[in-house]
Design a protein around this nucleic acid. Structure first.
Lengths: 211, 211, 211, 211
DNA sequence: AATGAATGAGTATTCATTCAT
DNA sequence: AATGAATGAATACTCATTCAT
């Protein structure tokens, strides 16, 4: 497909950092950051122990690079969905919820929030990065959606968007924790079905009557 | 003041395990399980490194004992609240939510779920313990409350209690994560106020109109 | 000889730091600071690798402690000799020269100046320590002796004591270097005889006639 | 400007070894042999790490080549001066002393003796090289000068030339050590002035009276 | 009950050296 | 001639755990 002369091997070099990050993700996911051994990361990446240090200065740098890499597309995706859904915020929220749970139900994806939760005390800058790059952008996108919904008359005018997004996102995260942390806990089967009913409750409440 | 026979020397002795667990909680909270050093736990407990091993077989045993100790009263408390609230489940849920967030907002209390989240892969039995001792009992208590509410006509008859409790608990946990993990993130000021409005949304929904 | 109850083993603890420093001296002497391995120091001291770190924080700390220990008595000894020799500075200088060469001819003693020479660029504080604790005190003692000699009419009134001590000490150090660094180089046999004639030259000059 | 045939490409090529040796000298001077990194030598020489190995087989080989290069002109120069000074050995000694201190006061030049002192135990052949190429030739030149002086009646007939050269060279080396090792130590200002007075003391002694 | 001393088994990191290109 | 990529071997330092006292 390409006419470049075959650079057979040294092309690896461009791919290496990503291969290493993949390996790190898997090791960190399985063992946690502290308990994961650089040697295992290296072996999984198919290179020597010293090879990792060609691309990352230290274990901590590896962690930070990993989180940075994984973080970037997340909020971007939600922002796109949010933008696209401004015409019908209620539907958009349902869609976003389904996608979010679908993703967070996967151990490899849940691994990043889990890492952030685990090490946020020791590496506050990682927590800060996650907050600014992921959560602040998510918050902005979702509260925007809520406000659009209010403007459109879809949502009650008296709700606080800041709190409403917790009402929406909380159960998603809760279910993701449930599935990933407490293996054996009964998960509600289908993420999409989960999202559908979840949004029903959030939109219309669980009370039998309006006050 | 006490009628106990004078216990000459080892008066402290029965307090020791708890002092050690207190110390462990603080160290684990600050550094995480792996990164915390037994020496620091010992120092914080005011005894020698070897002294810890008089009461706990290993670091892992210390962790398990800690989690067991912290776990026990939690579900019990919720069960009591749930029982007491069966007459008015909606009010009970509001009360429980407030208490839960009040507790989980405290770093020392949040430390336990955080630890469980961090090490659940490596110590599945700890995760299992947490599930059976805390979450299963919480689930039972809360779904019971939901069912009572349905029976009383407070809640819609078509809701799934299992999902409904996620709708209730999720935002609480989400806010707790927000506060404890992402320092600097804007938290909604008063936990009790949070709970009041949160339950309003959950009960009556955020949509402007019922479908 | 002592009536203390035999504390058989744990008495070692008091001796340990010195044993380790002895071992370090030997390893550093043989291999140089960088090339010496902590493991070898430990083995030579008869303890485990980790044992060394019970007494010294790092390899660098070990080096500094070693130099500090070895340094202390040196200048003190010279000061005593200088004080004692003020009545007859010329004789005192001869005696001090003999002792100095006798000592510096021993590899274990020469090892310290050699270490200082080797690492002075990288650890300027060690060089500074050596200067203030050894050389400044030596300088003070020896220039004092020179001045006494001038006052007594033993030495020419027009000499600069600061330079004169180099005339005295230089050849001693030179011979020590010769012996310790350039194995196989012809050393002048007896240190005491060396000192005797060396001082003759220094006192009376090598010229056939006074100017 | 040169009549050499155009050497298309590798014009630099024959300068490379010397550039590398210059770089090595600087790195070894700053960090010591063990602590200096080949990578830094390479970078300072403006080539890649692997490039160094095109010209030198190993770090040790680099050290040896460096010492060999630096050593060669030294003794030669002294031999020339000695030869030239045979007519008036006393004056020649003064001149040589001044030049020697002038050179040894320069860190880049002192670096070589310092390296030899540092690693003589581990690389005895380097020490041997230094001895045969530098010191033995110096000794021969200087003792020759002394003997000439005796023959001319400039110097006392009863002095041992072997020892007399230590009396001459020792203070020079001592002052060089002082300046290079113990930064901050008071050095006697002008090397030439130092040499002038130093030789005065050596020739005529510091004693007030001849015995 | 309590601990100071000791250690075995790691573990991150470094660096001289090699080699395919 | 030159190098970017890679690594094997090493090494300082750590820490949970043990044990004699």
């Amino acid at each position: 497909m390409s006419t470049e002369p075959a650079r057979r091997w040294s092309r690896r070099s461009d791919a290496r950092p990503d291969e290493i990050l993949d390996a790190a993700l898997e090791e960190f996911e399985a063992a946690g950051f502290d308990s994961a051994r650089m040697e295992d990361v290296a072996r999984r990446a198919g290179i020597s122990k010293a090879g990792v240090y060609l691309y990352f200065d230290s274990k901590e740098a590896l962690l930070k690079a990993l989180i940075r890499r994984e973080i970037t597309p997340v909020a971007a995706r939600v922002e796109v969905l949010a933008k696209a859904g401004e015409a019908d915020p209620a539907v958009a929220l349902k869609r976003i919820s389904g996608v979010a749970l679908l993703l967070l139900a996967q151990p490899r994806i849940f691994a990043i929030p889990r890492l952030v939760i685990s090490i946020s005390q020791r590496f506050p800058d990682i927590a800060a990065l996650y907050r600014t790059e992921v959560l602040d952008r998510l918050r902005a996108a979702l509260t925007g959606l809520i406000r659009s919904g209010i403007a459109l008359g879809q949502f009650r005018a008296d709700i606080d968007p800041e709190l409403a997004i917790r009402t929406i996102a909380g159960p998603i995260m809760f279910e993701a924790l449930w599935r990933n942390v407490l293996s054996g806990a009964p998960a509600i089967a289908d993420p999409v079905e989960f999202a559908r009913r979840h949004i029903d409750y959030v939109l219309h409440g669980i009370a039998a009557l309006r006050p």
